[in-house]
């Protein structure tokens, strides 16, 4: 029962992530990537199987859970944060350079004028 529910959750997170990644503006794409990384982390974690009250601390329980996927996921969580930060900053940079937050990089010259930097070279 738990297995089915968790599998469905992982599928749901991936699907929602994909749907948002397919949007045309940057912010939803970043939201989608974050949702997807939740799904991926849970997926990796689930590879070690689900065990309750069996932390991988030597001496705590007789049959501890699998520590290896946990170690992988721990760094993956931190790296996912760094990548989210990188992507969102890239999105900010694109908005500053192009004048909008479209993912395909459409440039709006009028926006340059409003920001009073028409002299600057386009990025």
């Amino acid at each position: 029962m738990t297995n089915i529910a968790l599998s469905l959750l992982i599928g749901m997170l991936t699907g929602a992530g994909v749907y948002l990644v397919l949007r045309a503006q940057t912010f939803p794409v970043v939201l989608g990537l974050t949702l997807m990384s939740y799904g991926v982390n849970l997926f990796l974690f689930a590879m070690g199987r689900l065990k309750t009250a069996a932390p991988a601390v030597v001496g705590a329980v007789e049959h501890p859970t699998d520590p290896l996927p946990q170690a992988l996921v721990l760094t993956a969580i931190v790296i996912a944060f760094a990548m989210t930060a990188f992507v969102i900053v890239l999105a900010l940079k694109a908005r500053a350079a192009l004048g909008n937050d479209h993912v395909d990089g459409v440039h709006i010259p009028q926006a340059d004028r409003l920001l009073d930097r028409s002299e600057e070279p386009r990025a």
Partner: peptide, 30 residues
Amino acid sequence: GIATALGAGIAAFTYAIISRPFESISGYFL
């Protein structure tokens, strides 16, 4: 539609894996 198909695929995939027995390599680390 694409998202649902992929999500369903991933869910089935996950379920197929986590519901079968496996042997971990973590014994060494423990």
